[in-house]
Simulated scan of single mutants.
Amino acid sequence: MRHLASVTGLRAAIAAAVITFTTSIGGTAVAQSAATYPERRVTFVVPYAAGGATDVVARLLASRLQEAWKQTIVVENKSGAGGVIGNDFVAKAPADGYTVLVAITQIIQAPSLMSSLPYDVFKDLAPVSQVALSPIVLTIPDAQPMKSLKDLIDLAKASPGKYAYGSFGNATTSHLYGELLKQTAAIDMNHVPYRGSAPLLNDLLGNQITAAFVDLTTAGPQLAAGKVRALAVGGETRKKVLPDVPTLAELGYPGFEAEGWIGLFVPKATPKDIVTRLSAELARIIASPEGMAGLQAVNLIPVGGTAHSFEATLKRDFDRWATVARTAGVRGE
């Protein structure tokens, strides 16, 4: 019996030692991966076409990050389905910090607008950093005769269903703004979704659509050139670069105070040390004079901050945009 007990005790001790050793090795591997990250190329995935605000920000950050880390950072555009294709690609990518999603507010709006999604933003993705706020502008082609929001609304009311407005994708801030305006102004305009802001602006310039809700980053140069005109802006206040353009609330249409943003995510199981390192480096870049100037030059409002603060923003905005979706009458697609 004593022999049996000693054998049993020895087996238990060996098992405990194996577990301790395995745990130690695993912990060391994670620590080493965080300490040496990145050891190879990092890919920034943009779920929209090249040329839009999300793409511009991704390339700006990738360039600065590449300089700081002396490691290749590439940008890949995986557009389609209003951002869902690119979002899903990253949600299912290896959780090692080498595939990073550059997303917009759509990612937190879509659950209230789409009947099903192939991923869950809270379960499958980890927030890294809220980069910047992205103002939205209601624009029309210069070829259009309207001079004010009232003119556009009067035109739409005179011919219900005849005119169309464009958005940079289904289940985006652009789409929600459009549907909310239809509800609050009691007008009927067809929604035409595009695969990003750049192709949307191209059709706006070509007078293929009557009006569009476009991000200020994409529309800014054409507004300055006089090729498109701004009728109103979203958000709580007027924008410094468009001081004479009123907010939608000023014009009597409340509900547009919530603004879009651009933020970075990684797959959920990515080691926290890697998330923290990436978040801290991005915060440093965004807060630097060069980072601030770069974002402001494309009409974005810099934010930065920690992964934790961005997570709090996601939870707040999930409820905020769900309310907008209900008010706008947008249903799952």
Rank of each mutant, 00 (worst) to 15 (best):
W261H: 05
P221G: 00
R229F: 04
A287N: 15
A211D: 06
L248A: 10
F256N: 08
G260I: 15
P267A: 07
A212D: 11
A249Q: 11
I286H: 04
T237G: 01
I286F: 04
I285A: 06
E236D: 05
K227V: 05
P267Y: 07
A211K: 10
V275G: 07
L223W: 06
P254Q: 04
G294L: 04
A212H: 10
P246I: 02
A219Q: 13
L295P: 03
R277E: 00
T218R: 00
I285V: 14
V266M: 15
Q208I: 03
L216M: 14
V214D: 11
G260H: 10
E281K: 13
T210L: 10
L223M: 08
A249Y: 07
E257A: 12
I286G: 12
K239P: 00
T270M: 00
V214G: 05
N207Y: 15
L205H: 13
Y253N: 03
F256V: 13
P254N: 14
V241D: 06
I274N: 04
G294P: 09
V228Q: 02
V245Y: 12
T210N: 09
A269F: 10
L223I: 11
R238C: 05
E257P: 11
T218W: 15
G235A: 09
L251E: 12
L282T: 14
K227Y: 06
T217Q: 02
P243E: 03
D244T: 14
A225P: 08
I262A: 06
A224T: 11
A283V: 00
L264H: 02
G291S: 02
V275W: 12
D244L: 07
I274W: 13
P254L: 12
N207R: 02
A225H: 06
L295H: 02
